[in-house]
Simulated scan of single mutants.
Amino acid sequence: MNRTIYESMKAAITELATVGKLQEGKLLVVGCSTSEVRGGHIGKDSSLDIAEDLCRALFEVQHEYGFDIAIQCCEHLNRALVMERHAALVRGYEEVNVVPVQHAGGSMATTAYATWSDPVLVEYVKADAGIDIGDTFIGMHLKHVVVPVRLSIKEIGAAHVTAARVRPKFVGGERAQYNETLK
C-alpha cells in the first residue's frame, strides 16, 4: 500500500465531506486518473494498485459519513459512472450495459466495480459534491449551482486535485431572504 496516496485521499475526502455537508442521501462524484497520480499522462499509465489505495480511503470516509459514490469512467466509456445499485435506483438513474476494465473505464471504476457487491453503470448523475483527481473534468455530473471547495490537499501523488460542492439556486430578487445554512 502507498501510505502517502492513501492518507492524502482520506484527508481530501474527509475535508470535502465536512465542507460539502455530505451525509446519508447525498451523492459524491469522483473523477480520477491513476496515471496522473503516479506521475504519468492521463490514460497512459493506469494503476489498479493505486486505485485500490484511493478506493480504500474513499470507502472508509463514505462509511463514516454515509453518502453515496459515483465514480466516473474514462472517455472510452463516455464518462459513464459506476455506483452501487441501491444508490442508482433511489435516484431513478437508468442502468447501462458495460463493465469497466482498466484500459476502458479506468482503474478507479474497475476497482469499485470489483469491490461493490451490486454495482451498476449509469450515463448521468447530478451529484451534490465532487472531487477531480488528475483533471478528469467532472463538472457535467454536478447539480447547479457549483461552488468551488478549496481543499488543503492540492495534489494526490503527482495529480492536481480540485473539488466542488453545490448549493440551491438563489431565486427572488433584492427583497428575497435566504436560508443562510444552504449557502
Rank of each mutant, 00 (worst) to 15 (best):
I131K: 06
N97G: 10
L58I: 13
K26G: 03
S35R: 02
S117V: 09
T111N: 06
V146K: 08
G25A: 03
Q23L: 08
V61C: 04
V98A: 13
P119S: 02
K26S: 09
G20Y: 01
I138S: 03
E60F: 12
M140C: 09
V19Y: 08
G40A: 12
A57D: 00
H160M: 14
R85A: 09
G157E: 02
L22S: 00
D135M: 11
L77M: 10
V146I: 12
I50T: 15
K143M: 07
R150C: 08
H63A: 14
H141A: 11
E94M: 06
S152M: 06
D53Q: 11
L27S: 02
A88Q: 00
K143G: 05
F137C: 11
I133M: 08
K26I: 01
Q23K: 15
C32T: 11
K44V: 13
S33C: 06
H86Y: 13
S152A: 07
A12I: 01
V82L: 09
G25H: 03
I42N: 06
V82E: 09
T34Y: 00
L54F: 04
K21C: 10
M108F: 08
A80K: 13
E155I: 11
L142E: 03
K126P: 07
A70V: 04
A127I: 04
D45G: 11
T34R: 12
G139I: 04
T115K: 15
F59M: 14
Q72W: 06
L151E: 10
R85Q: 14
T111G: 01
A70G: 04
M83H: 04
G25N: 06
D49Y: 12
A114M: 14
V98H: 10
V90Q: 15
A129F: 07
D68S: 12
I13K: 10
S152L: 02
E123F: 13
L22F: 01
V145L: 13
Y65G: 07
E94A: 07
N97Y: 12
G106Y: 14
S33I: 02
G31F: 07
L81M: 05
A129L: 06
A104N: 12
L151T: 10
H103C: 05
G25V: 01
V96W: 10
A80R: 12
C55A: 13
I138G: 03
A80Y: 15
V19D: 13
A70M: 02
G66V: 02
A127N: 01
E24L: 07
K44E: 14
G92E: 04
S33H: 00
H141I: 09
M108C: 05
H41W: 08
G92N: 09
H141G: 08
A104K: 14
G43Q: 12
I156G: 00
V120R: 03
G66M: 06
R56C: 02
K21S: 14
T136H: 04
V98E: 11
